[in-house]
Design a protein around this nucleic acid. Structure first.
Lengths: 126, 126
DNA sequence: CTAACATATGAGCATATGTTCATATGTATA
DNA sequence: TATACATATGAACATATGCTCATATGTTAG
């Protein structure tokens, strides 16, 4: 529909390169799923929740106390994490205990942490 | 300010646990930086751009062609990636070539990919 | 210098997102 | 069964985000 405006004239030499990238690239559905996961990590509150239950299971009010957030906000975020199957939960009496479902998550966060720490070194943090 | 409504009565037994989590947790500033990075990965367009330049440098119009997006949208996203120092760029004549700055990024994405693929197995994808 | 091209950027708009408030649901205890 | 407590959830609102359109900037060729 907008071929003419999209393709700049210089990129024909890059045609092969583009095609190669296209072939080796992650398929569109995985890409969408990837961005979904990263969305979960993208909110600070959610990330704090995730980190809090990295190695421990905690109940909702523990999380409220820890993050100093009201119960509704925490529950809404947990709802999101639950429906994305990032967390599992266990009911015990009145309480509901949440924990992480997958150990990849810790690796992802550690890797990202390494990234920002390397960034610090490279930039002005000397 | 809202102590009374936040702290549920049952969590006193968890007091130690909460404190332990609090102590071992990532500090607030790093947490914010982490969420910033994940925000960058959280948009599908941006993620596609990032993946496209994982191993190759590409100019803006290559990206437009590859992602079938208009130049303005791509440039805006590149602007974001640039100001977050996730990408580097190199001007050559009229063109500007973008590439990634950091190899952690690939690891992060690969890890996340592993997560979603494991999720597939675990769920109905048989 | 002018025209054409590649990229950048500001404004405006529509949509998505996170929080709060009010209330519902579910569980234990008196 | 009634009450208190822990959690979940819907609605409303304010803010953030991503895209588009128009235009600016910078570069090369004629």
């Amino acid at each position: 529909m907008r071929e003419e405006e999209l393709i700049c004239q210089e990129n024909y030499p890059h045609y092969q390169l583009i095609n190669q990238v296209k072939l080796s690239s992650i398929n569109r559905e995985d890409m969408q799923n990837l961005s979904e996961i990263f969305k979960l990590f993208a909110d600070e509150t959610r990330l704090r929740i995730i980190c809090a239950i990295l190695n421990t299971e905690l109940c909702v009010c523990d999380l409220c106390e820890l993050l100093q957030l009201n119960q509704s906000a925490v529950s809404h975020q947990l709802q999101l994490l639950r429906s994305s199957k990032l967390v599992k939960y266990r009911k015990e009496g009145k309480q509901v205990y949440y924990s992480l479902k997958d150990e990849h998550i810790e690796s992802i966060i550690k890797m990202a942490l390494a990234h920002i720490q390397e960034g610090d070194e490279a930039n002005g943090a000397k």
